[in-house]
Design a protein around this nucleic acid. Structure first.
Lengths: 203, 203
DNA sequence: GTCTATAGGCTGATAGAC
DNA sequence: GTCTATCAGCCTATAGAC
């Protein structure tokens, strides 16, 4: 919920205030509904003020993508404590899907909108920063199946993105699809570990 | 290429002319670039004329989705002649991915834009019309693995859609991912059958 | 830092003449 | 069937006052 207080105490307009409001609009009405005018109205400032903190609407979208990707990484890292490799991958997969289904518009912004936003979220590929794929790569590498990481990630993305844009036509719940996929990769692993200790809600 | 002839012979403005031009715009500049004004200019008529054939821009998008889905089904049906079940599924999977990579903006419109367009493409679910999923269901059912169809479809969708919006971050070619996935489903099938006898080009 | 005002576009859709 | 003209909005972004 974005507060309706208009700069009490003459509080300066901060980047994070803008981003909070922008995230709320995207989450509730989708990325297309994010306009500078609407955003300005929500935070109680004039549209012109936004340009003191962001060069453009696109810059705001980039920032939201970076932020969203970081949230996703945090959810995946919550599975680090699972000891068994197969179970950890399974937990990560479920956490990934859970993130997508819990924050569909954020997920959509990062991975389904525009290649530029995915680029922003993943960062400079030469900077060897952590990404969703690198996490899956790492998790699967230690189980001796490094080559599977892209397949697993892409399949998980398929489950989430079809759930987002075509739920009616994908009858099976995404979690069931995840289990089905991973049973193929790890026929032995059946137990379902604790997952997602903390589920942060957006805005 | 949309012809620049402006109603030679005083030819009446036909639905299909509008759709051809609309498809061209979507294919070349993306769905967001499809505006009634631009479309009207391409076909050499006034914007008002379009409304004699389509109720709205959305109706045009619906029609394009239906058309695109039919094209995709046709590509998949081209694999019907493959005798071996596993090989047929594999051929279908590759044909699916090939369609997505060949017509990314059409694919995007149908499956990545708006649930309403996917609905339009798939048609009334009670009408038991043919869909991408029903085709995979049928192909996989005869091999004794009906439950896998949604997993396979969703995974293929993941390969295509990440290739469309985040190519840079999915290093492996989609075809390799398809093979990897299907090797999990059909460990025995290695041969790569002839596929896609005809590849129709859009516009 | 924040405002008002506005430049300079874009959009979907419709009324009414021919 | 097709046009012109227009309604009634929307948009990003900037100039310049305070």
């Amino acid at each position: 919920m974005v507060s309706s207080k208009r700069h009490l105490f003459n509080q300066p307009l901060l980047r994070s205030h803008i981003l909070d409001a922008a995230r709320t609009i995207v989450v509730r009405q989708g990325f297309d509904a994010l306009s500078m005018r609407k955003l300005a109205e929500v935070i109680g400032y004039s549209p012109a003020s936004l340009y003191l903190h962001f060069a453009s609407r696109d810059a705001i979208a980039h920032a939201l993508s970076v932020e969203g990707h970081a949230m996703l990484l945090a959810e995946l890292h919550a599975c680090d404590s699972v000891a068994d490799t197969g179970a950890r991958v399974k937990a990560m997969a479920h956490a990934y899907v859970a993130f997508g289904l819990t924050h569909p518009e954020v997920y959509r912004l990062i991975f389904m909108q525009n290649a530029a936003y995915a680029d922003a979220a993943f960062g400079d590929p030469d900077a060897s920063g952590e990404t969703v794929l690198s996490l899956f790569n790492h998790a699967l590498a230690s189980s001796g199946s490094p080559a599977k990481a892209e397949t697993v990630w892409a399949a998980l993305h398929g489950f989430v993105s079809l759930s987002v844009t075509a739920t009616r036509h994908l009858p099976a719940p995404a979690d069931a699809l995840v289990d089905g996929l991973l049973d193929l990769c790890y026929p032995g692993v059946k137990k379902k570990p604790a997952r997602r200790p903390s589920t942060s809600r957006t805005a």
